[in-house]
Design a protein around this nucleic acid. Structure first.
Length: 469
RNA sequence: GCCCCCAUCGUCUAGUGGCCUAGGACACCACCCUCUCAAGGUGGCGACACGGGUUCGAAUCCCGUUGGGGGUGCCA
């Protein structure tokens, strides 16, 4: 029935790509993929004051990192000024726009005196102001009637034209505002679905009014996604919230986990299966099913997803993915490799990998005071005996996990770490050994770790700890 | 102030008039498993904001109240 849709993600390079933006690209991408359509990128760099061109690279890079592709070359609004200027001329010729030389201060002051709602009062509407170095072009909003549209997420939304002020189309520096540029570009690029954040709902009637005044027969379908909020239930802000996609990437999150989690903010699969391949989400995703209410970005749940995705990796892939986070590349990889699965099942973030095996890599190991107190010192003589027995036994047992286990089991019995039936209690007996050898109370399974560490280093650390008791 | 929107467990959601004494997931708690930690297993805590309608019947439809959010720029 309908032709392939054409979506667009239109970021402005005034900040890094944050999770809210990522969710917006993602939903656009879902629709494009599901319907066999396209998604184009449009860089809205019309605000010459705030623009930071270098941020465009970050935005593109993060989108790619997430595994989301786009179609064609990104379009830059800064390179399409002639289109907007032509549209503005048409609006002027049609009597739908006029020049205004009021300064923002004047507008504000009049509103204050008026006592009514803030905003422009239409002061220059019929003054016949000529274009000049300080004039802005304003759209003449109809005095009556209403403008409404059907939003895929929210249903029909209606605005009284009388409540809309005569907004600016062209700044006094000649550069268009995003209101004008958006309409012109969406029509020019053949955009069929405008999927963007909820903060744009109020701008939509202006969008429609401009399009109508321009005589465009282009009318996209709108879908305004719910905002992402922080714990205070306020819209996520780049300033107060730490939410840039790059930060999550650097913190060791997998893009697959990120995408999967983001898909669940404002949408949910009918069958309740949350963790699933992105392809399945694409198949099930529908804008009509998007929830209209704000969603809280829950890092805890994201972490859970990330851990799940990490555990689903095979050993090689895991090492591969973790490698970029190593500060001691080869050395870390060498000790990780033998126990990759054991480590993989215990981390939530890729950045946690190296710290979990550094005791295997480094010559010196720092002993954590709290761990020492709780798992070694507290046991006094029993700990000393355990350390001695372990040292003696490990000096000549076979250097493989089963033999090491048997040796430590014996040592536990000798040291008196036994239960009521005289069976060795490794939950406690492993404490002194683990802390002595790894410096910490928690870590990968002990026996396998010792195999990697090697007999000499194990014995050295055991003796060293014994000497400190 | 004005405009627009939203309202199911702490959080993300399922639910489109009867299948709901409201399901799942994260978080939390307990127990089990267990060489620490994870993972896993079992169980628990925990919600339809409130008030009116409509209907034989409402979490689901309508109205109001309350609460929350977004917008209100010569930013996007």
């Amino acid at each position: 029935m309908s032709a392939a849709p054409r979506l667009r993600f239109a970021p402005s390079p005034t900040g890094y790509l944050h999770v809210g933006g990522a969710r917006t690209v993602l939903f656009n991408w879902f629709v494009a993929r599901r319907e066999g359509g396209e998604m184009v990128l449009r860089i809205e760099d019309t605000d010459t004051e705030r623009n930071r061109p270098e941020l465009t690279d970050d935005i593109l890079e993060q989108i790619q990192w997430l595994g989301l592709g786009w179609d064609g070359e990104p379009v830059h609004q800064s390179e399409r000024q002639h289109l907007y200027a032509a549209a503005a001329d048409r609006l002027i010729a049609a009597g739908r726009a006029y020049w205004c030389d009021c300064t923002p201060e004047q507008v504000q002051q009049r509103a204050k005196q008026r006592g009514g709602p803030p905003g422009y009062d239409g002061h220059c509407r019929d003054l016949g102001v000529e274009r000049g170095p300080t004039t802005a072009l304003r759209f003449r909003v109809p005095d009556d009637g209403s403008t409404s549209f059907d939003d895929l997420v929210r249903g029909t939304v209606t605005f009284d034209n009388a409540k809309l002020e005569d907004f600016v189309l062209l700044r006094s520096n000649g550069i268009p505002t995003f209101l004008l540029a958006n309409v012109v570009d969406d029509a020019d690029l053949g955009i069929t679905h405008v999927v963007r954040g909820e903060e744009h709902v109020n701008g939509t009637p202006k969008y429609l009014l401009i399009g109508e005044a321009l005589g465009l027969d282009h009318r996209p379908v709108f879908a305004h996604l719910p905002v992402l909020v922080n714990e205070q239930r306020k819209k996520l802000s780049k300033r107060r919230d730490s939410v840039s996609v790059a930060e999550f990437r650097e913190a060791g999150y997998l893009p697959e986990a990120m995408v999967n989690y983001l898909a669940l903010l404002g949408w949910g699969p009918k069958d309740g299966v949350e963790i699933r391949p992105v392809g399945e989400i694409v198949d099930q995703f529908r804008l009509d099913d998007v929830t209209p209410s704000p969603a809280f970005f829950d890092v805890k749940k994201l972490q859970h997803f990330n851990a799940e995705y990490i555990r689903a990796l095979d050993a090689d892939a895991f090492v591969e993915r973790a490698r970029p986070f190593f500060t001691h590349g080869h050395a870390t990889e060498a000790v990780l490799r033998p126990i990759a699965e054991l480590v993989r099942d215990r981390v939530r973030l890729l950045t946690e990998v190296e710290p979990m095996v550094d005791f295997l890599r480094d010559d010196e190991v720092a002993v954590d005071d709290a761990a020492w107190a709780k798992h070694v010192a507290k046991h006094g003589d029993r700990a000393a005996t355990m350390l001695d027995a372990a040292t003696a036994g490990l000096a000549d047992c076979a250097w493989e996990a089963p033999a090491i286990e048997a040796t430590l089991l014996d040592a536990a019995t000798v040291a008196g770490f036994v239960n009521g039936e005289g069976k060795p209690q490794m939950s406690k007996a492993q404490g002194p050994v683990r802390v002595a050898v790894t410096g910490r109370a928690v870590g990968p399974p002990l026996y396998e770790s010792l195999v990697v560490l090697g007999r000499e280093r194990t014995l050295d650390r055991l003796r060293s700890a014994r000497a400190d008791l």
